[in-house]
Design a protein around this nucleic acid. Structure first.
Lengths: 146, 146
DNA sequence: GTAATTTAATTGATATATCAATTATATTTA
DNA sequence: TAAATATAATTGATATATCAATTAAATTAC
């Protein structure tokens, strides 16, 4: 069977693109906020916008599983970005609170993220971005068909 | 500063697409070859096509760093897919040989991979795939600037 | 209202990711 | 050629990924 080398497929390109974007974004975040990771930044942003999110919901938003999210929140608590507290309504869950230190960092994030996004999308029209999204979603749909 | 939520960006879509594809591909590989991972399969395929590849070169092909590759090859040796042997020409490197067991698995991989690819690209024209690649490469180029 | 089921989070085990430091060998330079 | 530099691979430390099993609480079914 003749199989195209993995490096010649569109999947390879998708993967290398997201990895390069992540490296690029991480580099710029590290410059301004040493010790913070891209994903920790995302968690802060999501929690800021939606304070009632559970760990599970955040995990889904950043494409991690619950186990990873538990450990990630652990390190964010250790780093004092977050505090866990009881959720009286549902005692299986926690309330996740951004600490004042976390809020300080959070303030510095948006301009960095904005710059990362616009720099990496430079010269790519809105139309192209929509095309990209549309095609990617087709792939996702295909992958979900059991 | 008003920042689009990460979940509304094209980066989010790129990341979720590749993760879903990986899950889909892994599921099908596991079904046929329990214990084998997508990346281990890729390493076998690359080594089969280019037996002289060094660990470092393979690492680049599958987007891992050298440290990860060392450990990945360790587990592939432990699983008896591969054997390390001396490279007399350059004693910093190894020769990586696919074992007979590894070759057996390798034979079964191509049809599975082919099926994964075509299933996830179903209904996506060649033209769309080219568009996708073109746009992604633009993003990569942007991320490489400085 | 109690038993069965579901859900959110955790834990353990193992693999991988990442960075920095180290080792051993090759290559370059003075 | 000896010293400086570069390269391939490894190792250590820490974080994350993944799967399966577990715990504790909530929900559903009977």
């Amino acid at each position: 069977m003749i199989l195209a080398l993995p490096s010649e497929t569109v999947f390879h390109t998708i993967e290398s693109t997201i990895k390069q974007y992540r490296k690029f974004a991480q580099k710029n975040i590290t410059k301004a906020l040493p010790g913070m990771t891209v994903d920790q930044g995302l968690v802060l942003i999501f929690l800021h916008e939606h304070p009632e999110l559970t760990q599970k919901e955040i995990a889904q938003l950043v494409f991690k599983d619950n186990a990873s999210m538990t450990r990630m929140i652990n390190t964010m608590v250790k780093k004092k970005y977050l505090k866990r507290s009881m959720n009286e309504k549902d005692r299986r869950r926690y309330k996740l609170k951004i600490t004042p230190e976390g809020k300080e960092l959070l303030k510095k994030l948006p301009p960095i993220i904005q710059k990362n996004r616009s720099a990496s999308l430079e010269g790519i029209s809105k139309k192209e971005q929509d095309q990209l999204t549309k095609i990617l979603i087709k792939i996702q749909t295909n992958c979900q068909k059991s």
